[in-house]
Design a protein around this nucleic acid. Structure first.
Lengths: 205, 205
DNA sequence: TTGCTTACATACAAATATGAATGTATATTA
DNA sequence: TAATATACATTCATATTTGTATGTAAGCAA
């Protein structure tokens, strides 16, 4: 088979991305060779290089396929116009992210690759900066929501929205890391819901 | 120079470990070759292979040089016999760990390597399990301290020591990650102290 | 239908890495 | 002080990986 139709080529491209995710997950990004990805996708390196100029680009595409939609969802979920009560809105946002991990293996695997199967050096340190920037956005939105909660007297007195937002972000950042590392689910995965509820409850008036 | 005295050999060994840390930090563990480590240490690969059987062993030794003392310090700091008030004890423990990062570049660099310059696959997944186990120990001790705090009526009513311990652990886990990633210090490093104080304050009666 | 392009496969050259084997001069020990 | 073990350096054989270059059959446009 030498020349595919356009749609088939698109399928091949996606198969390569999926294969890359599998191999990255199993062997780590650095140890993964283009040959291994090609084999896993059922093509040769020629095909991989035709679709992607190198491993870094392939990694970026894989990452963006999962993260761009995720960021959109976050933006939706953290909208200020939402008329739910702010604290519940935050809780829903946190739960929603965990739900995305539970429901989509591509999302789950990509998170795992990015957290414990990737070394952030050279070309990859750019990715780190993007992550940091994304964090900033989330923190800002959390702060605004906490501010609204404060205005509505939902918070116990003397709580600073900025500090609460940072605390929540760090909590959730830690939770995601533990969720990913806790592969067998015994420690954290099963308790996520109550951990989040408790975290929010600490703030409630 | 062909045969060193025992003490000199020990110095060489330590130079190799320090060199490995530098190269791991700059290039990531996977991309680092024994040759690069040797060059950085001012020896040849022969010397490196003489002291360490392979890169994995060298990595483990580097890690343990920093983490074993650190775990000891944690154990000391979280002792129940300490007669300080429990919440302050937790706060001191958290601040102490951050202080260790600030004061020792070896500690700081090793943390950074382990968090964003290492891929936890194959031989390295064992390390992940060790980390998880260590976390369990910390969580348990935090829980006991929160229990003592509760007995002393330091906590606001209806707070569960186990949940508080988990929340604190996740907060601190996230903080360490952000601390490491936030290289230029603009986002988190400078505010660590107040973040910790605020986290503990949320619990105080 | 012809001719150009596409979507790959195959082949090639260069670089890099590893572990082990071997060499060797000096510490150390008996 | 002779024998041996140590602390390396040097050499070697063997993989692996990468990017590119080239080949090729089939799709597609004119």
């Amino acid at each position: 088979m030498v020349r595919q139709t356009k749609e088939n080529a698109e399928l091949t491209r996606q198969r390569i991305i999926d294969a890359a995710r599998q191999v990255f997950l199993a062997r780590g990004v650095s140890r993964t060779s283009m040959e291994q990805i090609a084999t896993a996708a059922g093509v040769t390196r020629g095909a991989v290089y035709w679709h992607f100029s190198n491993k870094t680009e392939l990694f970026s595409v894989m990452r963006e396929q999962v993260f761009l939609p995720l960021i959109d969802r976050m933006d939706d979920n953290l909208q200020l116009e939402n008329n739910e009560d702010p604290l519940t809105q935050i809780e829903n946002f946190l739960n929603g992210t965990i739900q995305a991990l539970n429901e989509s293996s591509a999302t789950r695997e990509t998170y795992e690759i990015m957290m414990i199967k990737c070394e952030y050096v050279e070309e990859f340190s750019e990715v780190l900066r993007q992550i940091l920037n994304n964090c900033d956005g989330i923190i800002q939105k959390l702060e605004q929501l906490y501010q609204r909660a404060k205005n509505k007297r939902q918070l116990r007195a003397s709580q600073d929205p900025e500090q609460l937002a940072l605390d929540t972000h760090l909590f959730f950042s830690g939770l995601l890391h533990m969720w990913v590392k806790d592969i067998d689910g015994s420690h954290f995965r099963k308790r996520t819901h109550s951990l989040i509820a408790n975290h929010i409850d600490l703030r409630r008036n």
